[in-house]
Design a protein around this nucleic acid. Sequence first.
DNA 1: TAGATTGTTAATCGATTAACAATC
DNA 2: TAGATTGTTAATCGATTAACAATC
Lengths: 207, 207
Amino acid sequence: MPNKNDVIRLSRYRNALIRLRALNFVKVFSDNLADATGVSAVQVRKDFSTFDISGNRRGGYEVDEVIKRLNKILDKDSIHNFIEVGAGNLGRALLHYPGFAKSGIKIIACFDIDPAKYKPDAEIPVLPIEELDDFVKKNEIRFGIISTPDLAAQQVLVRMISAGIKGILNFAPIYLRGPQDCVINNINLESEIENIVYFVNFAEENK
Amino acid sequence: MPNKNDVIRLSRYRNALIRLRALNFVKVFSDNLADATGVSAVQVRKDFSTFDISGNRRGGYEVDEVIKRLNKILDKDSIHNFIEVGAGNLGRALLHYPGFAKSGIKIIACFDIDPAKYKPDAEIPVLPIEELDDFVKKNEIRFGIISTPDLAAQQVLVRMISAGIKGILNFAPIYLRGPQDCVINNINLESEIENIVYFVNFAEENK
DNA sequence: TAGATTGTTAATCGATTAACAATC
DNA sequence: TAGATTGTTAATCGATTAACAATC
């Protein structure tokens, strides 16, 4: 079974290939992709081989074909409906993040506890959190985004899972874990910053 | 030299410890931290040992002391000034992200190419990108955030680096790399989503 | 054919864990 | 002292890379 890093690399290859295609590349060698992504050329070939993407010895890989294959693997040919919980600054920004729309990701509703935030008639409605369960079940939503403060996050997680959500992107600054059959990716902005600060300081002290 | 994951775990320990302290914990065992963070107990002890955080055999670790030590290591006792480039939806949300303020991270100015976005008199001013270089040098800024579309990101990176920025958090959906002495953490929201979709699909197909 | 590139197997490297000695 | 926990060394596991055979 592939792990998170393997699949992250596939995304990276896809991004690079789309850019190379825009530059009229028809074929690429693993070396080109290595340069474009910072991944080693062997790693590229190994990944392609494990995901059944094959090239021509001597002729490299066909850009279009590899992109098609990656689209299939990453399920980029269909639209994925998401719900979001937390209509604060970050939450509202994500609702209108152009990268999502462009990339087949559609947030179809947002939920909050604060009545002041409700906007039932907006293009992407903001609804009371109590309606989450029904909404998710009725619309068969499998994916959710958490953009609440950390204190609320754990409860929101429980609610999402019991409603049947299977994949979650969590922006609350608390590391969430779920049951076996639920995928949670945590993005902790504070800890990313701490990380950067640490390594910049480290470099400064050791130069 | 520690790597990114090592330091990310330190952040995680710190978060957990702050929560445990709020629950009046005075001491913790590596087992407690393991439960609280999902990291194994050996790993906790190993990490603490490599970062010179010591406990009492039999008595565990003192919460306050470990937090202090982690604050020192992660440089949480001072305020870090950041600049940001890109005042779109996401950029504006980050400007007012409460988690940053709470955590000693201060974005002191934002830059954009679009004159319609300029707000030189706002609390956090939005300034023309041309002013970045001077501003960074005058204020000795070491850290930056990129929240532009992908096409602009590469140029923004060059500009930041030549101005002397050493640590960058990049939200543009393109994987950026910099010179040896510059730390870049890439957060690619699209690829995080692709990742979640992949694993949810995978679980569904293999159940 | 010669040369270049893929695809794969074996070797290496690094990170995690198991085992256990030290000690409070 | 007995028991529990830290701290560390050695073993294991997994991921990356080196080497090279296959082949276009």
